[in-house]
Each structure stands twice: as C-alpha cells, then as structure tokens.
C-alpha cells in the first residue's frame, strides 16, 4: 500500500512542478524557493522523528549485539564492543522468556478470537437490530477504552485482591469460596484485557458497517435471503478488509501490552503473568541493568510482530480478498 501511494505521490508532484514551472516561466528563484520551502516544511518533524524513533531503533539492534554495561559509550573505562548474538542465545535458553512469550500468545488469542468476534457481534446487533439508543450503548461499551490503563489496572487489582470485592461476589454464589493463590493467574489478566478493549472493535466495525448500503440488504431479504445469508454473502465480504486490519491491530497491540500488567500484577506471582515487554523492562530497569539483553528481547518482539502480521496478510490473500 505504501509503495503504491508513494508512486502516486511522485507522479502528482512531478506534474505539479512541471505545470508551475511552465506557468511561472521556470524562474531560478521559483525553483530555489521550492527547494528551500520543501526542507523548511519537512525538516522540523523529520529531525525529531529520526532522533526519537528511527535512530533509537537502529541503536537498539546495535546494543543487542554489544556488551554495553552503562556509562559512556566510547572513551569510558569499558569501551563498548560488539560481541555478536551471545545475548540472543542466552535469552533463548532462559525459561522466563518462554513463560512471557506464552502469556503474550494467550493475549494474542484472546484479542483475535475474543475481542474481535465479540466486538463484531455487538456492532452487528447495534447495526441490524431495531434498537433505540444505539448511541448510548456504543458510548457505554467503549468507555473503558478511554480511561488510563494505569487507573484500570489498579482498579482491577483492588477488585481481585484476596480482600477485595471479587471474593465477596463469588461467596454470594459459593459461600465456601476461599481466595488463595490462583492456579491460573493469567485468566484474570486476560479477562480484564477482554473487558477493556472489546469496545475498540465495536467502534471500528460499527463505523464500517454503516458504510454498507442498507438497501442492498433489504433487497436481498425481499428476495427471500435469511439474516444468516445476508451476513454471509453481503456483510462479511464487505468487511473482510476491516477484519484483517483489526486482526493486525489486535496482534501488534497484544505484543505491546505493558501498562496494565505492570500495575495489575507486575508479572507476579513468580513471573507467571509476565509478558515480553515486562521481561524486557525487568532486564533494563530492575536490579543491575542488562541493556544488551533487554534490546535483544525488544528486537525479537519486533520480529515476532512482523512475522504475525505477515502471516495475517497471507491468510487474507488465501481466504479473503473479496472486497
């Protein structure tokens, strides 16, 4: 998509420049003014972007291959050396890496097969159902998404605490319930993630459902199509692109998840709710810093994210593409 738009961009620009040159007589001052204004307009944003995102990304890969231990990069007591993939292999031999990776995959699964279908389902009944107050339902269900994740995390931590309301709530149904160490601490985290982000997909699907021409559905119904058939042959094909985009959004969002778990469980008990970004955070900012290791983890995270997104696109090409 980006390549395509760039081509269009280039062509339009060329045409424009030609037109301007022809009409203004192609003066050298106009040409100079064009170059100067271009860079005046582009550079402020681009320099900050390079300093904050582009360079650090490259620098992160460099650090992951180095033995940097803090302090001055060059000229200090321990000048930095490249040591190759040692920290990567150390990471692949660490059981906590796999624990975090597994939890990340659970979050990906809950997002793709929980949030997206549920969000779609709700958007669909809001769109098709003869419901009054659609605006109200949409506003309420999306509400958790706009609140700071930190607030949400602390709220649920208090709710699920052994002395919290969750225990009391369960005791209404099961008076003998005792809050202890859960055998699956991730379940609560996954529940909160599902609770929090489903509204996003409701919004995305509803906005795109509203682009569908209702008269097409009505006509199909008059011709005897059932609701299921209308869904299968009209609505789903029209949304296949949005579903793929949502899946990509869900996957990259799931791999990034940090704030919520950081405040809700901090990865505990015993790292059993850790995720890759928390694992990385621990290496860099808790205890003695291990910067190369932390950057090896983040580099692997980027690679995993690109692989999963590529896989999603591949699935789309194979089964979708009926836009």
């Amino acid at each position: 998509m980006s390549i395509f738009s760039k081509k269009k961009l280039g062509a339009a620009g060329e045409e424009l420049a030609l037109a301007t040159q022809l009409k203004t007589g192609g003066g050298a001052t106009a040409r100079k003014e064009q170059i100067v204004s271009y860079w005046l307009l582009v550079l402020p944003g681009f320099l900050i972007y390079v300093a904050v995102m582009a360079f650090p990304t490259v620098f992160s890969i460099f650090l992951s291959l180095s033995d940097y231990k803090g302090g001055k990069l060059f000229g200090g007591p321990n000048p930095v050396k490249l040591v190759g993939f040692g920290y990567y292999s150390k990471m692949f031999h660490d059981e906590y890496f796999y624990l975090a990776l597994k939890n990340n995959l659970y979050i990906v699964l809950v997002s793709v097969f929980g949030q997206i279908p549920l969000g779609f389902f709700m958007a669909y009944i809001l769109f098709r159902g003869m419901v009054r107050g659609r605006d109200f339902f949409q506003t309420m269900i999306y509400l958790p998404c706009v609140i700071s994740t930190v607030v949400i995390g602390i709220l649920w931590k208090a709710f699920f605490a052994p002395t919290g309301a969750f225990t009391d709530l369960v005791r209404i149904f099961n008076p003998t319930y005792e809050a202890g160490l859960s055998s699956h601490p991730m379940i609560k985290v996954l529940f909160v993630i599902l609770w929090m982000y489903t509204g996003t997909y409701l919004i995305i699907f509803l906005a795109n459902l509203q682009k569908i021409d209702v008269s097409v559905i009505e006509a199909a119904k008059i011709d005897g199509a059932s609701e299921i058939q209308a869904l299968r042959y009209i609505i789903l094909p029209a949304l296949s692109g949005v579903i793929v985009t949502s899946a990509i959004l869900a996957i990259s969002g799931s791999l990034k998840s940090f704030d919520l778990i950081y405040v809700m469980t901090a990865g505990g008990p015993a790292n059993r709710t850790s995720v890759l970004s928390l694992y990385m955070y621990d290496k860099a900012f808790r205890g003695a810093p291990n910067y190369p290791m932390a950057n090896a983890i983040s580099t692997v995270m980027v690679i995993i994210s690109f692989l999963l997104i590529g896989l999603t696109k591949l699935v789309e090409r194979k089964f979708g593409g009926r836009e």
């Binding site: 650090p56 992160s60 932390a294 950057n295 995270m301």
Partner: peptide, 13 residues
C-alpha cells in the same frame, strides 16, 4: 514508523 513499537526504542531513548 507506524509499525515500530515503543519497546524497541525504550532503552535507547
């Protein structure tokens, strides 16, 4: 840049 994650720039930043 749209595809980059905060994690990959956190430590360098």
């Amino acid at each position: 840049g749209l595809l980059l994650t905060l994690q990959s720039i956190m430590v360098p930043l």
